[in-house]
């Protein structure tokens, strides 16, 4: 077993340099690496390129890094919940690359899996296809998309062990497994960190080989964006 443990989020993110490309797990605010984001917010790092499906909300998630002007570019599929994001985009402070969600997931998956490019039907005939190679297969047109990789990735899991094996919970899995594999250095924060042997090997979602650093996070807020309930009958 290779012990990947680090003390805390501050130690885990300490060597992320300015200008780095950072991959982040999460969908909306679900399954985001809250502790890593809070730790990065406290550093002097800036000019980050962040690859994440969403950009958080004004005062939580990646929104915190936007407020501190740490982000040069966002690569995302949907950014509709963040007014500070909108302001920075319209004023030209922030570059944004919007790409289809499945293409984003697959580009990152391809990055972690060593596949430099692939063909997808998503975006054919749209703005997304501009300047990209297309090719026909069995009478249908597909678009070539390239892999996405990061200098670092930050992911959040439910449980993990010292070796970096991860288990996710509910829909908090989302982009986390792909981000883990596509980051040169993957930092995993988990709600519960256990010794090797505690996790059932058949149930592990992300093998520890993809994870370089792991720590048990604290004070998870797990903010809900759209609390929607059924009234009891």
């Amino acid at each position: 077993m290779i012990d990947k443990r680090v003390k805390n989020a501050e130690e885990a993110v300490r060597d992320i340099p300015s200008g780095a490309t950072l991959l982040m797990g999460g969908f909306g605010l679900c399954g985001i690496p809250e502790n890593c984001i809070a730790a990065i917010e406290k550093t002097d790092v800036k000019d980050l390129t962040i690859v994440s499906n969403n950009a958080g909300v004004d005062d939580f998630g990646i929104g915190l890094l936007l407020q501190k002007k740490k982000v040069k570019k966002m690569i995302s599929s949907y950014v509709g919940e963040n007014a500070e994001f909108e302001r920075q985009l319209l004023s030209g402070e922030l570059e944004v690359d919007l790409i289809p969600q499945g293409t984003l997931a697959e580009r990152v998956r391809a990055g972690g899996a060593g596949i430099p490019a692939f063909f997808t039907p998503a975006g054919v005939g749209t703005e997304v296809a501009e300047g990209k190679e297309t090719r026909d297969f069995e009478g249908k047109t597909y678009l070539m998309e390239e892999w996405l990789r990061g200098d670092f990735s930050c992911v959040k899991a439910w449980k993990g062990d010292y070796a970096g094996n991860l288990i996710f919970k509910g829909t908090a899995r989302n982009f986390n497994p792909m981000m883990a594999a596509a980051g040169k250095i993957c930092i995993a924060e988990v709600e519960e960190l256990v010794p090797p042997g505690e996790l059932e090997p058949n149930q592990i979602h992300t093998p520890g080989i993809y994870v370089q650093r792991i720590f048990q996070g604290e004070n998870y807020e797990k903010r809900i964006e759209q609390k929607t309930i059924t009234k009891k009958a």
């Binding site: 995302s76 599929s77 949907y78 950014v79 509709g80 909108e86 985009l89 944004v96 919007l98 289809p100 969600q101 499945g102 293409t103 997808t120 998503a122 975006g123 749209t126 997304v128």
Partner: peptide, 10 residues
């Protein structure tokens, strides 16, 4: 405002 296409294009 451009919110993004999410999964719609796929």
């Amino acid at each position: 405002m451009v919110k993004g296409m999410g999964g719609a294009m796929d």
